[in-house]
C-alpha cells in the first residue's frame, strides 16, 4: 500500500485531484480510497486530502500520518507549514512551482519533483486551476500509475461534471505536465516552528466548554483569541497603498473583511499578518491609491 497527502487551499480542487488519482489507480486494477480532511476551513484556507492505493481491499479508516508522497498544489504552502511532516524516509514531494527541484527549500533534503502547473493550466484551460495538471506530474514522478490512466480518470471524473471538451482539456493539461515534470532533490534546512496546541485534560477543560479569554501555554484561547490566527498566508495578491494618493477616507478600513486596515497619520495601512488579499480595498478606493500585486514569498 502507498499513501499520498495533498496540500492545497480551499477552492483549488485538491480533493478532486485526490479522488481522480484514486480513480486512475482503480482503472489499473488497484483498490483505492480517497478522502478530504473535513475541516471548517473556507475558500483560501490551507486544506488537505488523502489517497491510499493497494492491490487488495483497504480496510484502514484513519487519516494518513506517514505518507509515501506529498503533493503540494499551492507553492505558498511550503513557506508557511512543513509539508514534509510525517513523510516516509524515502518519500517524495511533488510541488506545483516554476522552480527546479534543486531550487526548492524545505525542512530537509528530500526527493522532489516540480512542475509549473499554474502556467500549464493558464495556457490550456485559461484558468489557474492546477488540480488536473498536477496529476500528470504525480504519474511522472512516482511511476505508480500511467499517464494514460490519469487521462482516462480525468475525462471520466471532470468530463462528467464540466462537459466532454473540458474533460479533454484537463486531460491534456495533465499530459503536458507529465512531460514537463522535473525530478531531483530539494534543499533542506528550512526551519518551521510548529504552532503549539492547547490540549486540556478532562479536569482542565472548562465545564460545558464555556470559555472566557484564557492564557494557556499555547497562547490565548476563548474570547477574542482568533487574533492569534494569522490568515496572511492565504494571500496570493497583496494590496500596496500609495500613501501619497491616500486621502484617508477610511472606505477601505470600513470595507476590509479582515478589519486589518488601520489609519496611521491619516493614511491607510495594511496589517499583512491578516490580509487575505481579496482586493476589495483596491476595488473600492475612490482615488485608486491601492494596487494589488502578485506576492513573492521567500
Amino acid at each position: 500500500m502507498y499513501e499520498i497527502r495533498f496540500h492545497g487551499r480551499g477552492g483549488q480542487g485538491g480533493r478532486m485531484a485526490a479522488e481522480a488519482y484514486a480513480l486512475a489507480a482503480f482503472l489499473e486494477g488497484s483498490y483505492a480510497v480517497s478522502f478530504p480532511f473535513f475541516g471548517a476551513e473556507r475558500r483560501g484556507a490551507p486544506v488537505r486530502a488523502f489517497t491510499r492505493v493497494d492491490d487488495k481491499k483497504i480496510r484502514i479508516k484513519t487519516q494518513v500520518y506517514e505518507p509515501d508522497y506529498v503533493v503540494v498544489l499551492d507553492e505558498t504552502l511550503i513557506e508557511t507549514e512543513d509539508v514534509l511532516e510525517g513523510l516516509k524516509e524515502d518519500g517524495m514531494v511533488i510541488i506545483n512551482t516554476a522552480k527546479k527541484p534543486e531550487e526548492v527549500r524545505l525542512s530537509k533534503p528530500v526527493k522532489c519533483a516540480t512542475v509549473d502547473a499554474t502556467s500549464i493550466a493558464l495556457e490550456i484551460l485559461g484558468r489557474p486551476i492546477t488540480n488536473t495538471a498536477i496529476l500528470g506530474a504525480i504519474a511522472k514522478a512516482t511511476g505508480r500509475v500511467s499517464i494514460d490512466s490519469i487521462e482516462k480518470a480525468i475525462i471520466e471524473k471532470f468530463g462528467a461534471r464540466l462537459g466532454k471538451e473540458a474533460g479533454e482539456k484537463n486531460a491534456k493539461a495533465a499530459r503536458v505536465a507529465y512531460e514537463k515534470t522535473l525530478v531531483g532533490v530539494a534543499q533542506g534546512g528550512k526551519a518551521f516552528v510548529p504552532r503549539k496546541k492547547w490540549l486540556p485534560t478532562v479536569e482542565e477543560m472548562p465545564i460545558g466548554g464555556a470559555t472566557p479569554a484564557m492564557e494557556t501555554d499555547a497562547g490565548l484561547v476563548g474570547i477574542g483569541s482568533f487574533i492569534e490566527n494569522k490568515t496572511g498566508d492565504w494571500r496570493t495578491f497583496m494590496p500596496i497603498i500609495d500613501k501619497e494618493k491616500c486621502i484617508g477616507c477610511k472606505f477601505c478600513w470600513f470595507y476590509c473583511p479582515e478589519g486589518c486596515i488601520s489609519m496611521e497619520d491619516g493614511k491607510a495601512s495594511v496589517d499583512y499578518d491578516y490580509c487575505k488579499g481579496c482586493g476589495i480595498c483596491a476595488n473600492e478606493c475612490p482615488v485608486n491609491a491601492i494596487e494589488m500585486k502578485r506576492e513573492v514569498r521567500t
Binding site: 475558500r43 482568533f226 490566527n229 477610511k250 470600513f254 478589519g259 481579496c278
Partner: peptide
Amino acid sequence: NIKDLPEESLFTPGHTACAGCPAPAIVRN
C-alpha cells in the same frame, strides 16, 4: 458616518471567512 466609528473592534481579525466575504465587515461595523 464611517469616520464616527470607533477604532476598537469587537470582532477580531484572524477569522476564517473566505477572502472577499463581506459578512465579517458587516458584523464588525
